[in-house]
């Protein structure tokens, strides 16, 4: 039976399932009290500022409906920006404005919207429409990041992001999520974005999948997805590990973007990182997580831990 065969294959490769991730990793290593700092992007920003990790520049904030007027004034002075909820889940409620023509804004996906639509969207954010638990939220306006030239060939719309899963301060696995036309410019794997696994040691892509199926070329540009080395890989690993240390979470995903001018920038931290990263790497997380646990020692420097993660990732491959 094929279900049984898949079951065995997953178990043999040490693929982490949702139940085990929740029970043995997120529930065990991520204390609930630390969630607010990662669930709220404003708090994440503060935390990163403290640790000297670059984040997208904050341009405007509205936490109450009466502050929307000021927000409108602010965005009318900007050419491009991103409007997002501070506590949004799964990339919901994010509006990327590429260009402004007077009082109209061209958003990702080619649509053009007016300033009223924009402030209505911001009002929805404040009301908690996109918030994790429906609580009132804060609308934030950030600078829009540009796709790094090294990734232009394999990006159609939107900006690719890079995720590093960090377990107990040691990087375990990494991938990059490349938006496609199908995903509507969003780096959401469920909607058809491409995920490419990254070799922790070199920062080069190794495998790629789209909606669970392995692929080799970008579906829109036709360019090869494999063996592309991401620029600034070492600093990215460092940011991920240091940010994870700051959050106090034991099992966390760090999402970063390589900006064309600023280089690596940390977007957000995720306390419940998804499992698709395993498909993108064609490798299970469990052997690496267990190796990290076995080799865990207190008071190691960031560099030591990165080296340990790289060694474990390389060892798990054999």
């Amino acid at each position: 039976m094929s279900w049984l065969r898949t079951w065995r294959a997953l178990r043999d490769k040490g693929v982490l399932g949702i139940n085990r991730r929740n029970a043995e990793y997120t529930l065990r290593w991520n204390p609930r009290s630390k969630y607010p700092t990662v669930d709220d992007k404003l708090l994440t920003k503060k935390l990163c500022a403290r640790a000297g990790i670059p984040t997208p520049k904050l341009l405007a904030v509205a936490s109450h409906h009466f502050e929307l007027r000021a927000l409108r004034q602010a965005v009318l002075g900007l050419d491009s920006f991103v409007l997002k909820p501070a506590r949004g889940a799964m990339g919901n409620g994010i509006l990327v404005v590429r260009a402004r023509e007077g009082e109209r804004f061209r958003v990702a996906g080619g649509r053009s919207i007016g300033i009223d639509d924009l402030s209505y969207h911001a009002a929805g954010i404040i009301s908690g429409l996109y918030a994790l638990a429906g609580q009132t939220d804060v609308a934030i306006v950030e600078e829009r990041l540009e796709v790094h030239p090294a990734l232009v060939e394999i990006t159609t719309e939107g900006v690719p992001d890079i995720r590093v899963v960090v377990f107990r301060g040691v990087p375990a696995m990494a991938m990059t999520r490349l938006p496609t036309r199908k995903s509507g410019g969003r780096a959401n794997l469920h909607q058809g974005a491409v995920a490419a696994g990254i070799d922790l040691g070199t920062g080069a892509t190794t495998h790629a999948v789209q909606q669970s199926r392995p692929i080799e070329k970008h579906p829109d540009t036709g360019q090869s997805l494999l063996h592309r080395t991401l620029p600034g890989w070492q600093p990215m690993l460092e940011f991920a590990v240091r940010a994870a240390d700051e959050t106090g979470l034991g099992y966390v995903g760090a999402d970063m973007v390589i900006d064309a001018t600023r280089g690596p920038v940390l977007l957000e931290m995720n306390a419940r990182p998804g499992l698709m990263i395993q498909l993108a790497n064609q490798a299970g997380l469990l052997p690496r997580l267990r190796a990290i646990e076995r080799g865990w020692r207190p008071d190691r420097s960031v560099e030591e831990r990165i080296a340990a993660g790289v060694a474990i990732a390389a060892g798990a491959k054999q």
Partner: peptide, 21 residues
């Protein structure tokens, strides 16, 4: 709640692992 094995739909999601032997 204590079951940490795969869910049925995990198997479907990760089925390409079985083919990538």
């Amino acid at each position: 709640g204590g079951y940490t094995g795969y869910r049925l739909l995990d198997l479907r999601r990760f089925r390409s692992f079985a083919n990538a032997d």
